[in-house]
């Protein structure tokens, strides 16, 4: 999709979130000197094109008790990773699951799956579930826990083309 300058202004104005008001798109329109109908049409077009995944709340996993979040990484046979990846992604404790390139020699892992739970013991048990699912196609795995959030911002756009 081609994003024009007006779309960019809408994105920049809403990247921190929408106003909590009965007619939030009218408020955004007001900030930008546009009509509400134009903002609605542009936001709908961006959602249809996949530029906007959805308009929703982002829950804080930590506040909701999911304080142990591990990035599990797996060295999976290249011939089988595309078959097994969706099965790992379908587990209800996996939030994101991607295939990524290895960085040899130090990093042999090509499948990344974020595992969530309330304790590290719980996450470790979930890691075993993933290991069992991958079976002999997996040659090695590791898990990296986050110990500190160093930065977390929404995507920033400069507003320029």
């Amino acid at each position: 999709m081609n994003i024009d300058a007006t779309d960019r202004r809408i994105i920049a104005a809403t990247s921190g979130g929408l106003p909590l008001a009965p007619a939030p798109f009218a408020e955004v329109a007001n900030w930008l000197g546009l009509s509400e109908d134009e903002v609605l049409a542009r936001v709908a077009a961006m959602q249809a094109a996949g530029v906007i995944r959805r308009i929703a709340v982002a829950p804080n996993h930590y506040a909701l008790g999911m304080v142990a979040n591990g990035m599990s990484v797996w060295d999976v046979d290249d011939a089988q990773v595309d078959l097994l990846g969706p099965k790992v992604g379908a587990l209800d404790f996996v939030s994101h699951c991607y295939r990524r390139p290895r960085a040899l020699p130090g990093w042999p892992y090509n499948l990344f799956a974020m595992l969530h739970g309330s304790t590290r013991e719980e996450v470790a048990a979930k890691r075993e579930t993933v290991a069992a699912l991958l079976g002999p196609a997996c040659r090695g795995h590791d898990i990296l826990y986050s110990t500190r959030i160093l930065k977390k911002t929404g995507m920033r756009l400069s507003g320029e083309g």
């Binding site: 990247s15 929408l18 995944r53 959805r54």
Partner: peptide, 30 residues
Amino acid sequence: EAELIDRIARLREIGAITRFGPFYDAEAMG
């Protein structure tokens, strides 16, 4: 409608949600 908006505002205030709004996909924007 007013009750829902108040609930969301409170959930944000106490840190149960981090944001409310569009989730943008940078890749779909090029």
